[in-house]
Design a protein around this nucleic acid. Structure first.
Length: 422
RNA sequence: GUGGGCGUAGCUCAGCGGUUAGAGCAUCGGACUGUGGCUCCGAGGGUCGGGGGUUCAAAUCCCCUCGUCCACCCCA
């Protein structure tokens, strides 16, 4: 037998109904904020990702699904959504239509990592991107939209943490400061952080090892080190968030894994996700559009981890797994009834009745059992007795009451019983 | 890539050297021949993840391998 590839999971009902509802809410809210859906390919030329995400990031160095196509060109299954959207933005010269463009997308992403709780090789994101405005109001408003979506979904126990990573001018200066601070403490850092010290010193800030946490707690804060422009931008973001009644906390030690982020970055974390506790994250990426060959257009965006979100919604219980109307079941007894049932069944279904049936001439008992199992509130019974009087029996499964209704009035009767509009 | 836990029926698991591998739930049937839920009775369903080894005897012990889960790295 052939099973699925490691880290590539099937999403089965009834869980798919959670996904559908999340997607529906997201589309609704994003539309209200002026975002339109964009659909981009799931495979791109490899260079798009290595240039945008950063050559030396873990994603590019060891997590990409990269293949040579039949002409030998290196192509990659997208590990994230921002780069393809930026590519499309530039390719179609969308900046020419309007100084502002807002897009959202949803779909699978791929990273070759070891699967664990909340982490898969194929996972799904819902993301949004705003191009063209570097005003801090965009940062705040987009965050507010995201928080609103989570509220609408009834998500509890999540917290928003924000930070500023400075810009291309001031971040290198902070990096120097941090390196100076760490220099004489390097030997006390954990193995990983000694490596981080060389590769990406900012990463030492969010190390989980107690020793490193202690050391970096005395490190200079990036929020004190950023330049005037960045500081001002960040102050405004915080101010606007407060005006929007969005709760947040500052986390000057939060670092992002993608090189293109500058200034505002954030993460929404939740309890109950295990070690991978971020359910959404993002930030500002002025400069990325230009780096990828477009005009110097600023950007801001985020991505939500669908699997993680679905996990949280499932765990906090009050999620109604199946919001659909309960089905009506039709019990068919005998070949003659079967023959005359086809027309009735088609008619009812086309009028919006969610109608289930059994196949293969099963006993009435077996059919009733299945009707009960499926949660049918009403059962139609069609057998020789009913055919003789050109009627069908309708049984109320809660009260056990049963009555005969003539065939041409079944639809009408069901309408009054279950409120289907016919 | 590294470390640890776990792989026995569709699902959750028991059995941990000794008859023919079990239970609960689920499925199917019967008691109740055209009426569900409750109860009772019965049936089907297993290469005990795979391969090799030790032994008179392996689901059980050893080795290898695959899968899965959790954690690290890193990230949504």
């Amino acid at each position: 037998m052939i099973n699925s590839i490691r880290g590539f999971n099937d999403i089965l009902p009834p869980e798919t109904s959670i996904w559908q509802q999340v997607e529906k809410e997201a589309r609704g809210i994003f539309a209200a904020y002026g975002f339109s859906e964009i659909r981009v390919p799931i495979v791109e030329k490899t260079g798009l990702f290595s240039r945008s995400i950063g050559e030396t990031t873990d994603i590019v160095e060891k997590e990409m699904y990269t293949f040579a196509d039949r002409h030998g060109e290196s192509i990659t299954l997208r590990p994230e959504g921002t780069a393809p959207v930026v590519r499309a933005y530039i390719e179609h010269k969308i900046y020419g239509n309007d100084p502002v463009a807002k897009f959202y997308y949803l779909g699978p992403m791929f990273r070759y990592e070891r699967p664990q709780k909340g982490r898969f090789r194929q996972f799904h994101q819902i993301g949004a991107e705003v191009f063209g405005i570097d005003d801090p109001a965009v940062d705040a408003e987009t965050l507010e939209m995201l928080v609103s979506l989570f509220q609408r979904l009834g998500l509890e126990g999540v917290s928003l943490q924000i930070n500023s990573l400075g810009c291309k001018e001031c971040r290198p200066l902070y990096k120097e400061k941090l390196l100076n601070f760490l220099q004489d403490k390097k030997s006390q850092l954990c193995q990983d952080c000694q490596r981080r010290y060389e590769i990406n010193p900012l990463r030492t800030l969010d190390c989980k090892s107690p020793g490193c946490v202690e050391i970096t707690s005395h490190a200079p804060s990036i929020l004190d080190a950023v330049c005037g422009g960045c500081k001002n931008h960040f102050e405004k973001v915080k101010e606007y968030l407060a005006l929007s009644h969005v709760n947040f906390s500052l986390n000057p030690k939060m670092v992002r894994g993608l090189d293109y982020y500058i200034r505002t970055t954030f993460e929404i974390t939740a309890l109950g996700l295990g070690s991978q506790n971020a359910v959404a994250a993002g930030g500002r990426y002025d400069g990325l559009v230009k780096d990828l060959g477009g005009p110097d257009v600023p950007g801001f965006g985020f991505a939500i981890g669908m699997e993680r979100l679905a996990m949280l919604l499932q765990d906090n219980g009050q999620w109604r797994v199946d919001s659909g109307q309960s089905p009506v079941f039709i019990v068919i007894l005998g070949d003659k009834a079967e023959a005359s049932a086809f027309g009735l069944i088609k008619n009812l279904r086309q009028n919006g009745v969610r109608l289930e049936r059994d196949y293969g001439n099963k006993s009435i008992k077996a059919q009733m059992k299945r009707a009960d199992k499926l949660g049918a509130k009403f059962v139609l019974i069609l057998g020789d007795n009913e055919l003789a009087s050109n009627s069908v029996a309708i049984k109320n499964m809660e009260s056990g009451e049963q009555e005969k209704v003539s065939l041409d009035r079944v639809g009408e009767k069901l309408k009054t019983l279950i409120g289907v509009s016919l």
